[in-house]
Design a protein around this nucleic acid. Structure first.
Lengths: 168, 168
DNA sequence: ATAAACTTTCAAAATATTTTGAAAGTTCGA
DNA sequence: TCGAACTTTCAAAATATTTTGAAAGTTTAT
């Protein structure tokens, strides 16, 4: 397979993976493009290579920066901005874990906390089932939260070495 | 907070969590409803409680069954089908892990395998960057795949006991 | 202070996803 | 075999998300 064809395939596959994890296809494609690029790219480069508009490119680059996956780079004597992605996939994974914890897990835990205080008779089937479910989810979320915290702080060697060995 | 209000809030929150993980809002809401219900529900019950059409209810119930999160239940002398969700959240988590591994991780690994055989000069910056990225992702995916396999097979006590202790 | 070179914004348009509901299909008791 | 009670299908409609591109905003060299 030729390099250009392979690049194209990777960008498509990463885009598809993104959508099944709730990330917009184009955002994942911009990320893919930067992941396989040896140099930082300008907005123009990205627009060209993915055939997307300036506004779209800008939006998705900003989102990737917000997610902590892409960095702005300034070049000597160049006025425009260039962008590069973290290439170490373990770091990428941890960064995504960190953001999802903040954006999704913690708000959900807040909601669960308030839901645990539902008023009602323990003998009522509905109240009982609700309380038990929420309790179970709340406890699980707590464990997930603590696991993620550790994961985020862990370095690759530690995690994939020590933990994988135990898991294996 | 009253039970009905709490139910409503949970259904909304679960729906929102679903969408940020690439699951359609309604599918997550049907799941939420079944999670907190003490008894199996009929399609009619679900339509009513979530104010959705018959077609929509059917579609999402089937999807949940496909994901292995919901089971059909037959009741004595009742012609229609009833549905219930697995309540043990750890089992739910493992089932989702299992499905996502099959649906998303394994197809991606197939693609990555073909992409590793890209032809090109190792001295070319572009080829080199591409190969290195793909290699890194491929190796990471392999580790993730093996971790998931173990996780899926693990029972709660083993995982949350042994591994969590080490992670903690 | 100006203007060229860039980035950001956002309303409208395009596209994708979800939902509906009625018709078709199925199952089962009488 | 019939028909009542249910489930499934799917094309059209509704809704939600994404994309565009031009105008507005910003930065920087002179």
């Amino acid at each position: 397979m030729k390099l250009d064809e392979a690049k194209e395939k990777f960008i498509q596959a990463w885009g598809t993976l993104g959508t099944s994890w709730g990330v917009s296809r184009t955002m994942a494609q911009v990320h893919a493009l930067l992941l396989i690029s040896p140099d930082a790219l300008s907005a123009e480069d990205i627009m060209e290579q993915l055939s997307i508009s300036r506004g779209n490119a800008n939006l998705n680059i900003r989102a990737l920066i917000d997610w902590g996956l892409v960095q702005k780079e300034l070049k000597q004597g160049e006025r425009r901005e260039f962008f590069s992605a973290e290439k170490d996939i373990w770091k990428v994974f941890r960064q995504v874990a960190k953001e999802r914890r903040k954006r999704e897990l913690e708000p959900m835990m807040q909601v669960l906390e308030t839901l645990r205080e539902v008023e009602g008779d323990r003998r009522d089937r509905n109240t009982k089932a609700f309380t038990e479910s929420i309790d179970g989810i709340y406890k699980f979320a707590g464990k997930a939260d603590r696991t993620l915290e550790t994961l985020i702080k862990a370095d690759e060697h530690w995690f994939l070495g020590s933990v994988m060995k135990i898991i294996k």
